[in-house]
Amino acid sequence: MSDFLIHVISVSCIYGILALSLNLQAGFTGLMNFGLIAMFGCGVYGAGLVHRFGLPVALGPALALILAVLMGLFLARLGRRLSTDYWGIATLSIAEIARIFATNLEPLTGGAQGISGLPLLFSGLRPWDGAARLALFAVILGVAWLICERLVRSNFGLGMKLIREEPQLARALGYDIDRIRSTVMVIASVIAAVAGVLYAHYLSFVGPELLLAPETFLIWAMVIIGGIANNRGVIAGAFAMQFMMAYVPFVKDYFALPSDFVAAARLMLSGGVILGFLLLRPQGIFPERVGGRHDH
């Protein structure tokens, strides 16, 4: 397999994990998180900060998890006071605030220059390091998928779907919607942070440009294209979007377009996919399976 293909599949796996995280929130629980990238940021900066201050690499995931749990709880807490629409806007704002902090808190985060030189995973295994990383990412994606599947098929998962459909009625049936929301946000945030740690050690770099809002919308496009509330579908969506993104530079070269074209085309691709699917096939390529059994 060529290095390019290994790279695209590796990044697809990381984005697949992110798509699963968003799917738990938006797909199954109806929590329209437009600031998912802040949860991802907990992971990338968890790994980055540990490296910057010379701490053992193994502390990176631990710091990322702590930040992710706090972020999840904070966003869930915010959801108690705001209606769904306003909460969605608030998450977008919080992600932007997190990015601005990352850009301006230079002594801590390295500012706009970011933090570079993070240890590359399996660098000692050259020339097989790329394949080893891909295998690791694929295994973690599989574990994340398994966790998400078990969760949504449990009685807890039924509660998630009832909250999505009729939150007040779910309460009247004995479901504690605040607790369910908090649990979902924490689990989803931890999953996104795991993707962040992997990405930081894959790029060997952490910077505020990783937290740009369009990244969240790219993940939304993956979920919408694949099929909202379908875990396999959103992973397929992540791969489809990543492959499309990866081939944009080839299109640019083929038509001899200016280099600005790549960034613009990627943004247009995200927006176009979201718009096209919402208008023509809102259920995505793989629609939600309705009426599945839940374990009690």
Binding site: E165, L169, G174
Partner: peptide
């Protein structure tokens, strides 16, 4: 809260609208 009353105090509540999962 309502969810605890339903689970621990043997209370049933039927809302006015949106009272079934369609």
């Amino acid at each position: 809260p309502i969810h605890e009353k339903v689970r621990h105090h043997r209370v049933g509540y039927v809302p006015q609208t949106d009272n079934v999962f369609r």
